[in-house]
Design a protein around this nucleic acid. Structure first.
Lengths: 288, 288
DNA sequence: TTATTATATGTAAAAAAGTTTCACTTTTCA
DNA sequence: TGAAAAGTGAAACTTTTTTACATATAATAA
């Protein structure tokens, strides 16, 4: 199989065998492929001081079927080049355009999702799902920035057959926690995992032996230690001013996953999945 | 530097506002950009069951000067895609394990972010940021599922020097809308862009000439048409039961971007960015 | 509902782009 | 030196693309 030579390669390769006029044309294409790729045959002809006929013959001699094919390949060259150069934007530079800022934000989010996904263990997920679908009531807890994720969890799960509860107010969350039992399930969300009020809630839950699904970014945090199952919402390593920003998206994606799995449970066709959940749990009784 | 929206981004961004015939054309281009990039206008017309005239108008509507420019950009996409490598996730199979389900959810989210990022135009972002930083008060509106994104917007922007407001209650949102003026700014979030209550709010805002930043997934929706600036939160094409699920993450990422840009404004070191915002706007006065 | 207006779409003519023919010039080499 | 070969541009010709126009269809208002 013959490797596809780039347009510039062909140009350089045949350069010596070209006539004077054709060399002029080739020169133009080699010097500024991007410009030439956008020219019509007439424009190129006049730029090279040649006739359109010469250009037409020129591209055929290079092996292209027609002029359009030639410009197309020139354009490819341009793209590849541009990408090589653009690779490496790490940090947000001071003079960055809005487009670059947007790119950076989106890619940080995507990196956070990727990291979070990588860190999830099937075993933990399975245990979490089992707790959820067997719970009398499912209760979401989250304060400050994490209240958004908690609210989202409520919004999603309220569509299922589960009994769910969430209250934005801290005092009510605390009272709610006091009412739960070992038959219920609590989903506690906290980026840092050590917010004082959140920990008060966790203590209350522990006192009542309520199963806790903790969603936090720090595996060593009080929340992570106290939780029955911990799901980590990792963030992209490059931090801006507000590091909690990208963890929200990871938190939500975790909730999405739990939601999807819970929904699938009710579908009879996906009963096998549920069986599999139990299997996974049986198979791994050791625990962290 | 103006961000180059990819051809696919443009296609996805405008897709919803296209006519039936044009959707057919767009579909072809989205499905096999490489093939289409090599077609003449006639071939594409017959492949799409349309006239050459329609194709010509179609590419102009997308913002290209002529058909050749369009095929050229499609060819670019091909190169970029080929380099990305294969993305092999398809649908969720019935017997999929929990780990696979999680993978799928996360990758759908990432794909949604990618599509959303692709479809954002720097021009639109710039206009949105300018509206925000010059507004007397910034007001978030969102009902149902989108209330979460609205709340998130409030949470983020409340840390800035801007005056922000958000109320979860519909009636209060409506009253709040009635109080705003042309000096304020409204951020209206709605996945479908056509929720009845949301549109009532939009009408109220329009009556008062309040600038509207619309965040929705459908470029042809009433919200998108009414908004001063529309930012599209695209979702991965593969839909599950609840398609709004992945748009939340895109919505949040858009808000993150706006937030970052707004924050950067207050840093004196990044004043150039702001200048650039104005530049971008000056430079691009046409367009919808 | 019907009239009216806007939107979509294809046909066909015009314009633009690209290719080929042909006559003329220059170069090559016996 | 002079025939054959190669190079070139003008113009005829073909193909491709755009635009103008007419018609159909959908949306909107009375």
């Amino acid at each position: 199989m013959v490797i596809a030579r780039s347009a510039l390669g062909k140009l350089r390769g045949k350069y010596d065998s070209l006539s004077t006029t054709e060399k002029r044309i080739a020169q133009l294409a080699l010097n500024s492929p991007s410009t030439v790729s956008e020219m019509t045959i007439r424009e190129l002809a006049s730029a090279a001081g040649a006739s359109t006929a010469s250009i037409s013959r020129f591209v055929k001699r290079l092996g292209y079927a027609n002029y359009r094919e030639f410009t197309m390949e020139l354009a490819h060259v341009v793209v590849v080049d541009a990408q090589e150069g653009a690779k490496l934007f790490k940090e947000l530079g001071e003079g960055d355009s809005l487009g670059v800022i947007a790119n950076k934000v989106f890619h940080s989010s995507m990196a956070s999702l990727e990291a979070t996904n990588d860190a999830l263990s099937e075993n933990d997920i399975a245990r979490a799902v089992l707790k959820l679908i067997n719970a009398g009531t499912v209760n979401f807890f989250g304060l400050g920035g994490s209240s958004i994720a908690a609210l989202d969890g409520y919004h999603k799960f309220v569509r299922t057959s589960l009994n769910v509860a969430y209250h934005p107010d801290y005092d009510i969350q605390l009272m709610q926690a006091a009412k739960l039992t070992a038959d219920d399930c609590a989903v506690v969300i906290s980026h840092s995992g050590k917010n004082y009020e959140t920990i008060q809630i966790v203590k209350e839950l522990k006192a009542n032996h309520v199963p806790i699904i903790g969603i936090t970014s720090y595996s060593g945090s009080p929340l992570a230690r106290a939780a029955t199952v911990t799901l980590l919402s990792l963030t992209d390593e490059i931090k801006y001013r507000s590091e909690g920003m990208y963890s929200l998206i990871s938190q939500i994606a975790i909730l999405d996953s739990l939601f999807m799995m819970t929904v699938l449970r009710s579908s009879s066709r996906t009963q096998p999945v549920l069986m599999h959940v139990r299997d996974v749990i049986e198979r791994t009784r050791e625990e962290p």
